[in-house]
Structures are given as structure tokens and as C-alpha cells.
């Protein structure tokens, strides 16, 4: 038996592999959302963008036989979704959260409608990098078979963290997100900045979708997302709008999510369904533990509609 080769070590290994596998879409959606929220706007529609991105990526990959073309097509459609959200929110008395929910439903519906013909065909998968060649154990080799998007996501989070502090674009984004008045006094147009930030956020969220349909689980159907787009929005708040925090939170979330299947694989048969709830319980516990009634949420962009 394969499992017997490493015995109980299968659990942490499975959690590690699961963390990487499950976390990738969370990484992209939460990085995208952190950009959008840092500009002072919340895009709750990312769930719709994610599913639409999954569909687009899959469809284009099927037609062109190139998974990367699929990813880029998904980014383009994600940006369009972001632009629509940003454009509508520009008008006075429009609530970004309500528009986000509408955009989510719109994205889901449109993806299912356009995606019907692509449920059957098989698309090429995104590549992964085998980093486990040094080991003889197949379990370790498969666990260290790391997908390219995860690595890109990790690099992107460090880059964004750096960019928020060290680039003009990053500072402008934070200024707009923190104080619309200060931004206007500086001659910046908060609406344009937010429009672009929402578009970039949408395109990153769509990459998360492309991962779902082109890598893991690696097929297109209507049940492809289990709320990653929505949970990622919560992850951003959990990570206090810090891109590296988003990356770590996504990993933690992914690892907790892999706990159930991992226990199942080593033969725990009783109550492992309970462990499927682990990510959500963990999120609640950490949020409660790190919050304080006397301090306001550190790092929250001041112009967000939830903090105003």
C-alpha cells in the first residue's frame, strides 16, 4: 500500500499539498480584491468574475489548445467585469456592495449560459513544476509537483506588498482608498483610480477562475466554484489588506481545507466531514481572537463603504 510507505506523515504532507492546491484561487482573488479595496471600493462580484473567468479560460483553451491563452482571455474578461462594476459605482448614490452582488449573479448566469457547450470537451491543463525529484517517494514527488500559477501568485503578493510602499501607483492607490478628499486636493480623480483598481482586481480574480478550470479540479462545470470568490473577500479583511497576509491567509485556508480529505486518506472514517468546516471555523476563531473592541481595524482603507 502506498500510504503505508510514509504512514502518519501522509497527513501533514497531504495538508501541505492541499494547501498549495486549494489556496491558489484564493491567492489570486484575494490579491485582486486587496487592490480594489485599497482603492476604497469593495467588489463583491468577484465570485461571478471567478466563474466567468473559469469558463472563458476553459473555452479558449479548448478552442486554441493553449492553456495560457485561456488564462489571458480570462484576465481580459475579468477586467471587463471590473470595469463595468467600477463604471456603475462612479455614479452618485450607487452602493458598491449592492452592485457587486448584482454583478456576481450576472457573471454566474452568463458563465453557465455561454459555458454549456464546453462541459464535454477536454482542455489542456496548465503546467506544473516537479520540485520533488530528489525524493524516491511518489507521495513526496506528487506533493511537490507545484503548479506555476501558485508560484506566480506568491511572487505577485511580494511584489504588490513592495509596490504599495515603494511605487507611485501604490501610494496613489492608498491615498485614494484612505481619503477621497485628500486625493481630490492632490488633483487625483478617485473614480478613475478606483475604476482601474477594480479592473485589475477583476482580472486577477479571473486568473483564480482559470486555475480552477485548467488545473484543479481541471474541468468546467456549473459547480466549479464553492464560494472561493466570496471567501476571498473575507480573506482580504482577515489579512488586513496586506498582500503578503493575503497569501498566507490563503495558504492557511487551503491547508485547513485539506485537513478533511487528508484525514480521510489515512483511514479516519468517523466525522471527517466536520473537518471540512475547519477553514471556516479557523477564520472565525482568528478573526475573533485578533479583533478588539477598543481599537479600530488597523490598516482598513478609510474610504471603504464598510468603514465609513
Amino acid at each position: 500500500m502506498d500510504e503505508a510507505g510514509i504512514g502518519i506523515w501522509g497527513v501533514p504532507l497531504a495538508i501541505f499539498a492541499g494547501a498549495i492546491r486549494v489556496s491558489t484561487p484564493f491567492i489570486f482573488v484575494s490579491l485582486g480584491e486587496s487592490i480594489t479595496e485599497r482603492s476604497g471600493r469593495i467588489n463583491l462580484g468577484l465570485e461571478g468574475t471567478l466563474v466567468f473567468g473559469a469558463m472563458t479560460a476553459y473555452a479558449i483553451a479548448v478552442m486554441s489548445n493553449s492553456p495560457w491563452l485561456g488564462v489571458f482571455a480570462a484576465m481580459a474578461t475579468g477586467a471587463v467585469f471590473g470595469l463595468i462594476h467600477g463604471f456603475i459605482c462612479k455614479f452618485p448614490k450607487v452602493n458598491d456592495i449592492a452592485i457587486g452582488i448584482a454583478m456576481m449573479q450576472f457573471g454566474l448566469g452568463l458563465a453557465f449560459f455561454l459555458g454549456k457547450p464546453f462541459i464535454q470537451p477536454v482542455a489542456p491543463h496548465l503546467p506544473s513544476i516537479p520540485l520533488g525529484g530528489w525524493s524516491d517517494l511518489p507521495q513526496i514527488q506528487s506533493a511537490l509537483n507545484i503548479n506555476v500559477l501558485f508560484i506566480i501568485g506568491g511572487l505577485l503578493s511580494v511584489m504588490l506588498w513592495w509596490a504599495f510602499k515603494n511605487t507611485r501607483v501604490g501610494l496613489v492607490l492608498r491615498v485614494v482608498g484612505d481619503s477621497s478628499d485628500a486625493a481630490r486636493a492632490m488633483g487625483l480623480n478617485p473614480d478613475s483610480v478606483r475604476l482601474l483598481a477594480t479592473a485589475v482586481g477583476g482580472s486577477l480574480a479571473a486568473v483564480g477562475g482559470a486555475y480552477l478550470s485548467l488545473f484543479y479540479p481541471g474541468s468546467w462545470n456549473e459547480g466549479i466554484s464553492s464560494g472561493q470568490g466570496l471567501m476571498a473577500v473575507a480573506l482580504v479583511i482577515f489579512a488586513r489588506w496586506n498582500p503578503i497576509g493575503c497569501f498566507l491567509a490563503a495558504l492557511l485556508f487551503g491547508g485547513a481545507g485539506a485537513l478533511g480529505p487528508a484525514l480521510q486518506s489515512v483511514g479516519v472514517t468517523q466525522g471527517y466531514y466536520l473537518f471540512y468546516a475547519a477553514p471556516y471555523v479557523l477564520t472565525l476563531v482568528i478573526l475573533v481572537a485578533t479583533s478588539s473592541p477598543t481599537r479600530s481595524l488597523a490598516g482598513a482603507p478609510g474610504a471603504l463603504s464598510i468603514t465609513k
Partner: peptide
């Protein structure tokens, strides 16, 4: 009224 951006440092 202050026009400084609260979450940025003075230098920023």
C-alpha cells in the same frame, strides 16, 4: 480640516 492621508506615514 486636515488633508493628510491618515494611513500613510508623514514621509509618504
Amino acid at each position: 480640516q486636515f488633508t493628510l492621508v491618515p494611513s500613510l506615514t508623514g514621509a509618504e
